[in-house]
Design a protein around this nucleic acid. Structure first.
Length: 452
DNA sequence: TGGGGTTAT
DNA sequence: ATAACCC
C-alpha cells in the first residue's frame, strides 16, 4: 500500500487539497543525538580527562560539559566563573577551534549514511535518518509468521505495550532495532555514545530521543504522541518555535501546547502569517510532514571570532587574515570552490539585541581558479576584497567598536560541474597537484563518472 | 552567550 | 541583506 502512495498526484492543486492527501504514508524516523559531543571528543583526544568533571570553554563560557560536571551543578552555556564557583575541581579545555569536532561530526554522519543515505544533520551533534525503506526491506525478508520473535530495542515511551498485530507498532519496533545498531556502530567505530529517538516524524523523533538521557534510546508509539507533546511545559520547548515566535505567542496569551492547539487558526494566521501559523499549529498536535532532507556536503564554510573590542582598521585586518587563512585550508581540503565571500560584523551596542551586519560579493574568477594551488598567493587579493567589504560597512574615519568578525565562503561549486568541457576543467590544478591533500571521496568520483 | 550551521523573506 | 530557526 505504501508504494502506490509514493507517486506524484496528477490532480489539480485544488483537488490535492480536497482529497485526503493520498493518505499519510507512515514513516519511521530516527533522531540520533550524541551525548555532550565536544566533551566526548576531548576525552577521546586526552583519555586522562575521563572520569573527571570536564567543561569545554569558548571565551568566558562553558559551552558544554560531561556528565560528571553536570552532577556537580555545571550547566551548558554557564559563565566560567559561576562554573568554577559551583565546581572548583572542574577541568576546562578550550573549544574555540572546531576542527576536530567538525571532522568527527562528519564521520558520524557518514557512518549513518551507510545505513540509509537519507541523513539530515542538525548542528554538529544531531542527525535525522529516514528508516522507512530499510524497515520495509527488513519486514519483507522476515520469515512469514515470525512476528512473535520481534522485540523492541531500548525504552518504549510511557511504557506503552506493543501490539504485534499493529503494523505501525511493528515498523517502529524494527526502527528501534536499527537505531540500536547505529548506536553500536558509533561506539565500536568511533568510540562515541549517544541517544536515539524513533517515531513517525522528525518532531516526535527529536522530542522522544531526549526522554532517557545519556546513551539510551526510546521509541514512541502513535497512541502516546499526545502525551509526549503535552509533556512540554512551554511552547518554546517545541523545536521550530524559537525565541521570537514564542514571545509573539505569549503576547497572544498562548503559553502551553494546549493553548496553541485550541487557539483560533484564523487569528493566528493574521498575527504570524499563514505559513508560520499553519506550521506551528500542526507542530502543536505533533504533526510534522517535513521530509528528512539529505544534508550532503556543507553549503558554506565560516570562521568567526568574538572580541572584547576591535576599534581600528589594522586590528580588523589582522583578525580577518587569521580567519581567512583557516578558511582557505578548509576550502582546499573540501575540493569545491567558493564563488561568494561574505564579511560579517557585530557592532558594540549597550543592550539592543546584538544583530549582525554583512556584506558579500562574488569572488573574481581568476582568483577562484587559484584556490587549489600553493604557488600563487590567494591571501593578498582576498584580504583586499574583504577590507573593501569592511570599509563599506564601517566608516574607518569615525570611531567604531566591533565585538565580532566573521568570514564566510559560500556558493560552493564542484570542479566537475563548472565549465565542464572547457579547457579550464582539464587544466584545473587541484586535481593533479600535491599541494592539497585531496580528501575527496567516492561522491566526487561518482559525479566525475557521470560527466565522462 | 560561542562558533558554528540552515532556510525563508 | 536580514531575520528567523537549529545546535
Amino acid at each position: 500500500m505504501e508504494g502506490a502512495e509514493a507517486g506524484v498526484s496528477v490532480g489539480s492543486p485544488v483537488h490535492d487539497r480536497a482529497v485526503p492527501a493520498g493518505s499519510p504514508s507512515s514513516r519511521v524516523i530516527v533522531h540520533v543525538d550524541l551525548d555532550c559531543f565536544y566533551a566526548q571528543v576531548e576525552m577521546i583526544s586526552n583519555p586522562e580527562l575521563k572520569g573527571k568533571p570536564l567543561g569545554v570553554q569558548q571565551k568566558y563560557l562553558v559551552v558544554t560539559c560531561n556528565y560528571e560536571a553536570r552532577e556537580l551543578g555545571v550547566k551548558k552555556l554557564m559563565n566560567v566563573r559561576d562554573a568554577k564557583e559551583k565546581c572548583p575541581q572542574l577541568v576546562l579545555v578550550n573549544g574555540e577551534d572546531l576542527t576536530r569536532y567538525r571532522e568527527i561530526s562528519y564521520k558520524v554522519t557518514e557512518l549513518l549514511e551507510e545505513f540509509s543515505p537519507v541523513v539530515e544533520r542538525l548542528g554538529f551533534d544531531e542527525n535525522f535518518v529516514d528508516l522507512s525503506e530499510m524497515v520495509e526491506k527488513r519486514l519483507q525478508q522476515l520469515p512469514s509468521d515470525d512476528l512473535s520473535a520481534l522485540t523492541v530495542s531500548g525504552h518504549v515511551y510511557n511504557n506503552q505495550s506493543i501490539n504485534l498485530h499493529d503494523v505501525l507498532h511493528i515498523k517502529l519496533l524494527v526502527g528501534s532495532q536499527i537505531a540500536a545498531e547505529m548506536r553500536e556502530a558509533m561506539y565500536n567505530q568511533l568510540g562515541l555514545t549517544g541517544c536515539a529517538g524513533v517515531a513517525s516524524n522528525k518532531l516526535l523523533a527529536k522530542l522522544v530521543s531526549g526522554i532517557f538521557k545519556p546513551n539510551q534510546q526510546t521509541v514512541l508509539l502513535p497512541e502516546s504522541s499526545q502525551d509526549l507533546i503535552h509533556s512540554l511545559k512551554h511552547i518554546k520547548e517545541m523545536p521550530g518555535i524559537g525565541y521570537k515566535t514564542a514571545k509573539r505567542l505569549e503576547a497572544l496569551g498562548i503559553s502551553s501546547v494546549h493553548d496553541l492547539q485550541t487557539f483560533s487558526s484564523k487569528i493566528l494566521e493574521k498575527e504570524l502569517g499563514i505559513s508560520i501559523a499553519q506550521r506551528i499549529q500542526k507542530l502543536s498536535f505533533g504533526e510534522d510532514n517535513s521530509p528528512v532532507t539529505p544534508s550532503g556536503p556543507p553549503q558554506s564554510f565560516s570562521e568567526e571570532d568574538s572580541l572584547k573590542k576591535c576599534s581600528s582598521e589594522v586590528e580588523a585586518k589582522s583578525k580577518i587574515q587569521e580567519l581567512l587563512a583557516s578558511l582557505l585550508k578548509r576550502v582546499c581540503q573540501d575540493g569545491r570552490k567558493p564563488h561568494t565571500i561574505r564579511l560579517i560584523i557585530r557592532r558594540y551596542s549597550s543592550e539592543k539585541h546584538c544583530s549582525r551586519e554583512s556584506r558579500q560579493c562574488s569572488i573574481p574568477s581568476h582568483i577562484i581558479q587559484k584556490f587549489g594551488i600553493g604557488s600563487y598567493d590567494v591571501m593578498t587579493p582576498m584580504v583586499d576584497i574583504l577590507m573593501k567589504l569592511f570599509r563599506s560597512m564601517v566608516n574607518v574615519k569615525m570611531p567604531f567598536h566591533l565585538t565580532l568578525l566573521s568570514v564566510c565562503f559560500c556558493n560552493l561549486k564542484s570542479l566537475n560541474t563548472t565549465k565542464k568541457g572547457t579547457i579550464d576543467y582539464y587544466l584545473t590544478p587541484s586535481l593533479s597537484t600535491t599541494s592539497c591533500s585531496g580528501k575527496r571521496s567516492f561522491k566526487m568520483k561518482d559525479t566525475q563518472m557521470e560527466d565522462f
